[in-house]
Write a protein that binds this DNA or RNA. Structure first.
Lengths: 140, 140
DNA sequence: CGGAATCCCCAAAGATACTG
DNA sequence: CAGTATCTTTGGGGATTCCG
């Protein structure tokens, strides 16, 4: 609504509604979110397990990510009122539906990260002419 | 170390080396990167077209994203030395291999964004008890 | 037109310490 | 063990300007 912009561009496979896609993408596109989903895709885990599995994530981000996912209905949080506090997080049905998309990303990452790294180096050497992108400055 | 988790879950595509996955994910997981890839998946576009299609992106981010993608070998940049400067960006073969993963994400987003929004609201109402997450203030 | 350089701001991410 | 509150830092990212 509002802005009825006429994009006379060539091939636009993108409806004007790319808005909500940005929204969702901005939310689940987050690296920690993806990693969390991926980690939980194997099965329910508790807080510490998640922190250990994703290792590199801070409690802040973990908690934040989990809460966000819970709000969105992607995961469930089950707290057992035991003496040693225990909370388990598990994917909901909705969350599971995301697995394929996330794994598609991670599988791609796993399959092409080497290629990417190679391209980076090549680019670094080839386009040095005026590349200021060469922040890599190999010293010298 | 203690990561000898026995995952008996359904789809586990998870090597312990989630490190490089984080790397790649952090790069393509960027919202603008995904949208750019998605936009280019329809075919080659020039700078202005991209800016118009993704609209909402600033030249800074667009340029930055394009450069990054070019460095990684996901897209190619072809500059035509014409009077009216013209530069076209197109996905490489590697870039195209990402399309399926990206579209998987966007399709999911398109299919479940409503559900997510609903869950958000429900969550907002249900857990109001002490929810500090309720920063939604719809501002009348 | 395409993009590089600069300024500036705010929000996000990390670390730490504390509590239930 | 699980989670929260606080402080600080960093840089992402928007707007503007100028150059090729």
């Amino acid at each position: 609504m509002a802005t009825a912009r006429k994009i006379s561009g060539p091939c636009q496979a993108w409806p004007d509604d790319s808005a909500f896609i940005r929204e969702v993408l901005d939310r689940i596109g987050d690296k920690w979110t993806m990693l969390t989903i991926a980690t939980l895709s194997a099965g329910p885990l508790r807080y510490s397990d998640l922190q250990a599995s994703i290792r590199g994530i801070s409690q802040r981000m973990l908690t934040q990510t989990l809460k966000q996912l819970e709000r969105d209905g992607l995961i469930t949080r089950t707290a057992y009122a035991e003496v040693p506090p225990r909370v388990e997080y598990a994917l909901t049905d909705l969350g599971r539906s995301l697995i394929e998309a996330v794994t598609a990303m991670t599988r791609w990452a796993a399959a092409h990260h080497t290629e990417i790294a190679a391209n980076r180096e090549a680019s670094d050497l080839t386009g040095v002419g005026r590349a200021k992108a060469a922040a890599e400055a190999p010293a010298d």
